[in-house]
Design a protein around this nucleic acid. Sequence first.
DNA 1: AATTCGCCCTGTCGGC
DNA 2: TGCCGACAGGGCGAAT
Length: 301
Amino acid sequence: MPELPEVETIVRMLLPNVEGKRIETAELRLGRMLLDMDPGNFSAALKGQSIDRILRRGKYIVMELTECALVIHLGMTGQLTFSPADYVENAGFVRTVTGMQKPKGVHPVDKHTHLILWLGNGERILFRDPRTFGKIFLVPAREWPKHPRLSILGEEPLQLRIKPFLETRFPAASARPVKALLLDQSFLAGVGNIYADEALFRSGIHPQTPVRNLKEPERVRLLEAVKEVLRKGIRNSGTSFSDYRKPDGTAGSNQEKLQVYGRGGEPCRKCRTPLRKSLVAQRGTVHCPVCQAKSAARRKS
DNA sequence: AATTCGCCCTGTCGGC
DNA sequence: TGCCGACAGGGCGAAT
């Protein structure tokens, strides 16, 4: 699940390879990945435009082109890779005994490759997404922040200042579980299941805790923890738990550093208690029953 | 008005 | 060995 750190890594690594280059041909191979537009018009709209800038907003990748913005959401299994001029076609994935796809060179062009942007000299940007939860859309000129999908996004977690944010944007009276709030993109943009669980563990907060039960110090700790786990994710160039790959096709390393996500039943790295797996806000959730105990006030009731 | 639920989709895995 | 159901889940629109 590409979340903020994964998307940030992709944007940072893609930028030096493609900035200023011209899209010679845009090849959309699966029309339903494209929103609000006739696939037939898509290639014509992109042809000849230059890539002025690439940036991230929440989990969205925004490519600012000469006359519009190409916006991509990677969904659950989306991959955006750069295929250099000297790329050898047969150097794709190698399957290991455990069934993991081990990248060798960049991604192959296969039945899951839904968009190819040809940049000239054989260079390409490839969008591949086996589960097709990803989305592609175009926004005119520089109006991408006004697009309905982007205008609803909350603050960028890495930019926000905690004190003012707590006063103005934190739904202090809400009864919903704190994990549901973390996953809400109109609260914080870019936090997904992995980093929500990690932030809750780091701040010692039970994922089911109603938001209104969080005391001021806990709210501060939670927001600091969100920033920390995201920054750490970026430092490790993302979590390759399943499909996520960097633009060069290689895996990130943050999966080796995770404290709770994907570790249900395994011992807590702090207290050795078996981590508990549950369902919170319809999402698989892992937490430590000791390090993230429910508050005394809640236990009483 | 605020939350929750159902759905989209396909590869992987465990059980029999 | 092969079949099958369960599971993974981001975000939207419908339902509550």
